[in-house]
Simulated assay, not measured.
Amino acid sequence: MILLRQELGDVLRTARQAQGRTLRQVSADARVSLGYLSEIERGQKEASSELLASVTEALGLPLSFVLREVADRIAVAEGVSIPDTVPDSLTEGELAGLH
């Protein structure tokens, strides 16, 4: 089963490690407890939108980048392809009510 919290945690951990930063450094910059951030990264806890915004800011990453990476990973696990742009059929149909 694909879990959003696990994919999100993996993306956050990968980004942090790619920057050569410790969990302690990011937790301090994001003003979130070390233990809680560790649980988020391990996919054990759901991140609130506020916490996610703090962590992505601490990592210097746009929230949209992190969410896109999570969506791409889930799509691969589901075996589907996500287009780079929203198809017209979706814009005119199912998503029309969101604008």
Rank of each mutant, 00 (worst) to 15 (best):
G79M: 09
A71G: 02
V55L: 06
L98K: 06
F65S: 15
A18L: 06
L52C: 03
D88C: 05
T91S: 11
A77C: 00
Q19E: 05
I82V: 14
A28Q: 15
G35Y: 01
A53F: 10
L98F: 14
G20L: 05
L34V: 08
Q19K: 14
L52W: 04
R73K: 14
S33F: 01
L98R: 12
S27K: 02
A28F: 08
S27A: 15
L3Y: 06
D29A: 15
P62K: 09
L37T: 06
R13S: 10
V55W: 01
R16P: 01
E50K: 08
S81E: 12
G93Q: 03
V32M: 10
R42C: 02
G79Q: 09
Q44K: 10
S49A: 10
Q17S: 12
A28N: 11
V70R: 07
V66F: 00
S27Q: 03
T22I: 00
L12D: 00
E7K: 11
L95A: 13
K45F: 01
A28P: 06
D88P: 14
A58W: 00
L67N: 02
A47H: 05
Q17C: 03
V26P: 11
E7N: 14
T22G: 11
G20P: 03
I82R: 12
A58D: 05
D10N: 12
R13D: 02
E46I: 07
G79V: 08
L8W: 03
L37V: 07
V70H: 07
V80I: 15
V80Y: 10
L34K: 13
L63V: 13
A53E: 13
L51D: 13
T91P: 00
D10V: 05
Q6R: 14
L52K: 00
T14V: 02
D84M: 06
V70E: 06
L67I: 12
L67H: 01
S49Y: 08
I2R: 11
R68L: 10
I40R: 00
L3G: 07
D84W: 07
V26E: 06
R13L: 07
S64N: 09
E39A: 11
G35W: 02
V86L: 10
F65D: 15
R16Q: 05
L67Q: 04
V55E: 01
V70K: 05
A15C: 02
V66Q: 05
E46N: 10
G43Q: 03
G60H: 06
S27P: 06
A18E: 13
A28E: 13
A96E: 13
G97E: 12
I2A: 11
S89V: 14
V55Q: 01
L8N: 07
S48I: 01
S49Q: 12
G43L: 00
A71V: 07
